[in-house]
Design a protein around this nucleic acid. Structure first.
Lengths: 196, 196
DNA sequence: AAAGGAAATTAAAGTAGATTAATAGCCTTT
DNA sequence: AAAGGCTATTAATCTACTTTAATTTCCTTT
């Protein structure tokens, strides 16, 4: 059941009684998006926190020259969206778009605040999730400064092999902060090195 | 009083009764570091969460070529350290060093966990703080990909004018992910543009 | 006021990665 | 199987930024 999936994820981090579990379950709504549809678009206020049950998405920023910059991918069991927009209920700077048919669990801002009151432990769950996300973000900044594009690509393929297989290359280039042409060049280099 | 300063910061985000405030206050210890001393060194486990009362610090990463990469600065009223190391009680990847005499409030991992049990609202406080920090980290990644070094420097000077004044230039270059020589070059450009 | 060391500037040469543009491969639809 | 539209490759030229190295300015100590 859909509810089980997200409850399972929460229960990996905090203990919930059956009653609390029921309250949590009832707070979520389920929705399916088609390929290309947007879960959140920049300038809209992010009304929902979104947990992916199946499918895959990308979160990206559109700069003033019209170029897309992918900040994050999301697949099964990942939280996605513009956390800043949701937390402060201000217009989003980021877009979250589905790269294939994607089923999600969503909780609205009001329901989340109510849930924090009804099941205060959920504060702990969200804190733990965000702390981990923050940690990986800081490491990413450091890597962008201390590693070459080639090194970052190799690290990415090791860390997220499922994403490498399921996402077009030009999006991985965007995530790494390089052009698709240069990623192609890097891949050629790597292929040639492996021949020897 | 030292205690007031950190309590004040917490009370901006959550409501605390007098009794809760007292428990929170008692959980913190105060300490003063001299210029150059380390609050946390890589490979040590971060035992404390640290809040700056006065002074300034930098958090940096040492890459395998021996180059320093500054991830963050910290001044009055900022939380600093290696959150990942503290949260998971695993060895730190980052160093936090005082750039001048610095007075801090610290809470140990055990006391923090006890405080979460005694004053569960503290989960909420930390969640709110980390959510904001996460938001600014994501924006920073995007900016590193979509803006030139010059644009990033100008944005930095606007956003953190106090830091620009209190920190040597070569550290700001490191934070921006460029060399000190190139920052010098950028500054010259900007100065010349302002003449006209 | 001199000395010494750290921080900042300048300039020349070098490189990682961007840009442009052309071509090729590969799905999907008909 | 042909057509059309994405996705990926390749190669030439270009540029933002690095590296190296020398010089200068600024701060601290005596």
């Amino acid at each position: 059941m859909k509810t089980e999936r997200i409850l399972g994820h929460i229960r990996q981090k905090i203990h919930l009684t059956d009653e609390e579990g029921a309250i949590v379950s009832q707070s979520f709504k389920f929705r399916t998006y088609l390929k290309g549809q947007y879960i959140i678009q920049e300038r809209d206020v992010s009304r929902y926190q979104t947990f992916i049950l199946s499918g895959k998405v990308r979160t990206f920023y559109l700069d003033n020259k019209g170029n897309e910059h992918i900040i994050a991918f999301g697949i099964e069991d990942w939280w996605v969206g513009d956390i800043c927009s949701f937390a402060t209920q201000t217009p989003a700077e980021f877009n979250t778009q589905c790269l294939e048919k994607t089923t999600v669990a969503q909780i609205s801002f009001q329901d989340m605040e109510q849930l924090y009151r009804d099941v205060p432990k959920m504060e702990r769950y969200v804190r733990i999730i965000i702390q981990a996300a923050y940690g990986s973000m800081s490491k990413r900044i450091v890597r962008n400064h201390s590693m070459s594009a080639k090194e970052r690509y190799l690290l990415f393929t090791q860390t997220y092999p499922e994403i490498v297989q399921r996402v077009p290359q030009y999006m991985i280039a965007s995530y790494l902060g390089i052009t698709k042409e240069f990623l192609s060049h890097i891949r050629k280099q790597i292929a040639e090195e492996r021949k020897n």
